[in-house]
Amino acid sequence: MATQPGSVDGNWERPTAFYNRTTKYVVYALITGFVLYSFWNIRVSPDRFLRGLGGGVTLVSNMLPPAATPMQFDLMVQGIVESILMSIIATTLGIVVSAPVAFMAANNLAPRPIYLVGRSIIAVTRSFHELIVAIVMVKAVGFGPLAGVLALAFKTVGFFAKLLSEEIEDIDTGQMDAIEAVGGSRMQVYLYSVLPQIIPRIIGLSIYRLDINLRHSTVVGIVGAGGIGITLLNSFQKYDYQYSSLIILVIVGIVMIGEAASAYARRRVQ
């Protein structure tokens, strides 16, 4: 198998997703540069970093074992219960409000201007982190679980209306035509053809969202919007790290149980 050198091209370059190699390296260099710039920009001194690591050992030893006085324990239970209740109410409220938004944002049902309004509502509610919404709600309606419920419900609207509107866009329009053909009104069309098609999905999504809201309800208290979060924040501010670690463990436990229960319930529904 003789290959004379020079008779066949000995050069080959891997085709890249970029236009050519230079562009590729420029893009890589830009990314690297930006990361380095980011690093420089937050001004981490190695000294501070090392002290933090040392502090980690102290903190962990201060956190162990997790503990609480009987009074603190009661407070924690109250907070947890409040979080769970908040998540249930917020999920329900959010779903109720999201239904009209979902129909607005379904391009096969809504006229163009309404569709755009619906989509914007979804985009805005989805873009803000639940804690941002919560901190604003606290100022609007005062400290306490109401602010948390409103914040979680607000986030639920964005999540739910988006998925639901996609679901509506996928539905079989043949059935709608059938009902309209026998003389049904628009409302009847929604009730008898659209709703039955999407109900199983709605239940599944509700359970899923309940799980998410439960997670969030444990932290919105950090900005004063009710639930266990405020108790956790206070324990940190009082350097009562044994109590903090207990609360964190309980939160982790609740979140894990919620996740498992939600997964189980969704499997049962489908």
Binding site: I42, R43, R48, G55
Partner: peptide, 28 residues
């Protein structure tokens, strides 16, 4: 995997602010 996922980012932030002081490092 499951432990880091179950603790919310704001709780991690609380912990790291205690360790490294306020600032972007704790956030990162």
């Amino acid at each position: 995997v499951s432990f880091t996922r179950s603790v919310n980012v704001i709780i991690w932030a609380l912990i790291f602010v205690v360790l490294f002081g306020p600032g972007a490092l704790a956030g990162v």
